[in-house]
């Protein structure tokens, strides 16, 4: 069963990682969900698919009052990211969903109505969470054509969606990357095949290299921390992407 782990805490400011689920059916891709809590409000990043909603909801509720959820950040439009939207709205109808303007009229197929969506312009935006300012950082074409990551300058955490994702073997349940060179082997095929644009990749590497990042938290696989963050960015910058077969 999924569990929420606190990966950052500074008084009223917390990041929870609802990390990998060993009990979910094997035919569903494993995902991580993240919750940013600040004061009286919480923001859920990439809440995941409809099938895993009960597991995510109960893991979240164990660590934070679910009625405090003010919004959902959807890095992009994939079903493993946001197909649970209708369920979160069923629990809390006034939730806001922040997502690329590109998906504003696509995501209602998963749920929500006109006032649910807050479209993010291509250049990004600031998302406020009870006084905390979070930045939606452009990551277009990585892999989705309308794609954002979420940066918390105070916690120095970058939620990087599918970038940094690793499809780890079932027996590897480490929350953090332990050995970068061994870990990255499980990320290589994914990034080569899923990330479509070399130019977008170089842009992103440059953009995030300017940020102060203690932790890079992806939607699949383990969390990069400390020196592994820059190691990942360098590895990604050098990787040939958009290839069908390696």
């Amino acid at each position: 069963m999924k569990q929420a782990h606190c990966i950052y805490q500074d008084e009223e400011h917390r990041w929870l990682a609802i990390a990998r689920d060993a009990t979910k059916p094997g035919y569903i891709i494993d995902t991580n969900e993240y919750v940013v809590v600040h004061g009286d409000e919480a923001l859920l990043c990439d809440p995941g698919g409809i099938e895993i909603f009960p597991a995510v909801f109960s893991a979240l509720s164990a660590e934070c009052d679910p009625t405090r959820l003010a919004g959902i950040f959807a890095s992009h439009q994939d079903p493993d990211i946001i197909s649970s939207l209708a369920l979160w709205l069923e629990f809390k109808p006034d939730l806001k969903c922040y997502t690329s303007w590109l998906w504003q009229s696509f995501l209602p197929h998963f749920g929500g109505h006109d006032s649910t969506f807050v479209p993010i312009p291509d250049q990004g935006t600031t998302i406020r969470l009870d006084g905390l300012e979070l930045q939606a950082i452009p990551a277009h074409y990585l892999h989705s054509s309308g794609n954002f990551h979420l940066y918390d300058p105070k916690a120095k955490i970058l939620f990087s969606g599918d970038v940094g994702a690793a499809l780890l073997p079932a027996d590897n349940n480490d929350l953090y990357v332990q050995d970068f060179s061994r870990h990255i082997r499980h990320a290589e095929g994914f990034h080569k095949r899923w990330m479509g644009s070399d130019r977008a990749k170089r842009d992103w590497c440059e953009r995030v290299s300017r940020l102060e990042i203690d932790m890079l938290v992806p939607q699949h696989g383990a969390i990069y921390q400390g020196a592994d963050v820059q190691r990942f960015i360098n590895w990604f910058a050098a990787l040939e992407v958009g290839v069908l077969r390696s």
Binding site: A62, L87, E90
Partner: peptide, 29 residues
């Protein structure tokens, strides 16, 4: 659709145990 949503939400609330804030309101709605 509503029934499917209600079923999954009920499962989630059950997993979360007694007294999750907002559960009663969500059920009633």
């Amino acid at each position: 659709q509503q029934q499917r949503i209600a079923r999954i939400l009920a499962e989630a609330l059950k997993l979360s145990g007694e007294g999750v804030p907002g559960a009663r309101e969500a059920r009633r709605r």
